[in-house]
Design a protein around this nucleic acid. Structure first.
Lengths: 344, 344
DNA sequence: CTGAAAGCGCTTACAG
DNA sequence: CTGAAAGCGCTTACAG
């Protein structure tokens, strides 16, 4: 139905080789020939098939992205920078929203493989055997935004350290009964490291933390609300809560408000991520800010490096771990004590 | 480097035709042959090329989606339902985030055309000549979530009516000085219709509205904040504000708070969309709720109908306009008067 | 039930 | 500077 390169060649009265050359540029061609071809393209409203081109060139300019939850503002923001950076380099994004369901990952990875994407970006932090097997076997360049315990190029912050700092901040402002609303146990990267950072800080400051003070969530607002409720119902009174995501922190704050407790008057709340939601909520959320823009950009840049060096035997098997800086952003959701002698 | 169908055929000792048949199913093949092929596939870790398959079958199972701003929770939510519905039907999404920059649209539409996507979803509401020309020429099925003034299948709510209801709600609760923070003038769908609905309601209730009471924005939080500031600085005191998006409403509320004004004590604020942000903000936002899940699902269903009927001459040229129901969701961001005799 | 061969729409050595 | 022809990795009539 639509015109092919052959049709253009016929109408222009030249060979398909020449048509291909004027479209792709590079080689020298006479102005006269070019004009004829351009006219024919215009006349036929010709649009070259990237599918045929991809098959021939063995390159699709496609990047597959696995994202845990696109409705998370933090993740959507990273994705927007990934899209922007990739788009400027001529790459398009194939996106799979796994809704935190790890079982879907392998299914999509296989589709990416069959689509012959040039590279894959993994934003999730959970693992299973199928994923591991796929990643070990594939020859497609991969960059992950988590520490999956596999020799893979990755870019992320130091989650352990971030959690340690968040907890220390609470301690240094006079809190002793600190609860944590953490991530999924199966999240072996951010989730695991943030919990470990919390526990390490508690140990350092000789703060007792029993299991009733730790609730496992999934980074979502509603979960933060529900777990805060459990915390208030079950345990001894808490002075502060460290949530492993801003969204759970917001859920916790809303729960506290609904139960007539003031933040930070009665309970301090600190979040993690530094997404937009932290700024719009009242009180403004104190949180660990991740460098969102940089994470998106660096991820794509590293992936493109891998894609372009895929034939260099020199770089074969090399991978990088990039740890980006985070920082504590102080809002108004934590009570401040005057005696914070040990800040930072 | 990786195995082709030819390799599988060689290892299995059969023809490529047979390999293709066991992979795609459908035709009858002997159990013995199938076993040989399966074993070879396993042995070679063979992954069929969807690129080659697409070229041959003239079908990519790709859907291109143009999204104005993926960091908007409302849009991201719709996208997640689009992704889910499409994924279940075996389609993958190619996503382009245009960051509200209409000039990017045609660029991406052309890429979609070259990628031979099976269908296109348009989430934006702005138009220009290039977009119009493309849409009139293309043979690719398109579904839009706006009324672009072109014979195209579309699914959206009645924005005019929604805005009319929102404004009426404010009036019926005793407000007379009502400002509107609306969308971009170039948004000829939602933006235009919501403004018209507002103006019509004002006229109906004989409410005077001068141009200083209307501010043009872009649906984002920061813009809502800035425009609310302008409203307070310039004009006579407002009693209520109708924002054309929840995000701008939240920005307006934060601005009011920062200036020491109470919502809804001093000023009522009503939003539009019914995204998650409406629920998490304090006070809970009164807003016009759009059926987000349904919008995503119906959009994909209609697009798949178009894709599958593309060869039916009977359906050629037919298009549908689907108008989905919205409803007023009452939160706590609007002052309620006892004398609301005319409540809808 | 199975296979040889043409063809999908391009690109790219190779030759002139 | 230009073109004929092979080939990218599949699918699918057609024949047996």
């Amino acid at each position: 139905m639509s015109a092919k390169i052959k049709d253009v060649a016929r109408v222009a009265g030249v060979s398909v080789t020449s048509v291909s050359r004027v479209i792709n540029g590079g080689e020298h061609i006479s102005a006269k020939l070019e004009k004829k071809v351009r006219r024919a393209i215009e006349e036929l409203n010709y649009s070259p098939s990237l599918i045929a081109k991809s098959l021939k060139r063995n390159k699709t300019n496609l990047i597959g992205v696995i994202i845990p939850d696109i409705t998370s503002n933090f993740q959507a923001s990273i994705l927007s920078y990934i899209e922007d950076t990739a788009g400027k380099k001529g790459y398009n994004l194939l996106i799979s929203n796994i809704v935190e369901d790890t079982d879907k990952v392998v299914k999509y990875l296989n589709i990416y493989q069959e689509m012959r994407v040039d590279g894959i970006i993994l934003m999730h932090g959970k693992m299973n055997e199928d994923i591991r097997t796929f990643l070990e076997r594939t020859t497609i360049p991969v960059v992950t935004q988590a520490d999956l315990g596999i020799p893979l190029t990755s870019v992320h912050i130091d989650d352990y350290q971030g959690a340690y700092e968040a907890t220390s901040y609470l301690v240094n402002n006079g809190h002793r009964r600190i609860a944590m609303i953490t991530g999924d146990l199966r999240d072996i990267s951010a989730g695991k490291h943030r919990l470990e950072g919390f526990l390490a800080a508690c140990q350092h400051y000789q703060i007792e933390v029993d299991s009733s003070m730790i609730k496992y969530g999934d980074y979502k607002i509603n979960t933060g609300y529900r777990l805060m409720n459990e915390l208030l119902d079950e345990g001894s009174p808490v002075q502060a809560v460290f949530a492993a995501s801003d969204e759970m922190a917001v859920g916790a704050i809303n729960c506290l408000h609904d139960r007539g407790l003031s933040v930070p008057g009665d309970v301090s709340v600190i979040g993690f991520d530094g997404s937009q939601i932290a700024d719009i909520i009242k009180p403004a959320l104190t949180t660990i800010r991740q460098p969102i823009k940089q994470m998106g950009q660096v991820t794509v840049e590293l992936l493109l490096d891998l894609i372009e060096s895929v034939n260099d035997t020199i770089d074969a098997g090399k991978f990088k771990r990039v740890v980006l800086p985070h920082h504590l952003h102080v809002g108004s959701s934590c009570r401040k004590s005057d005696s914070d002698r040990e800040r930072n």
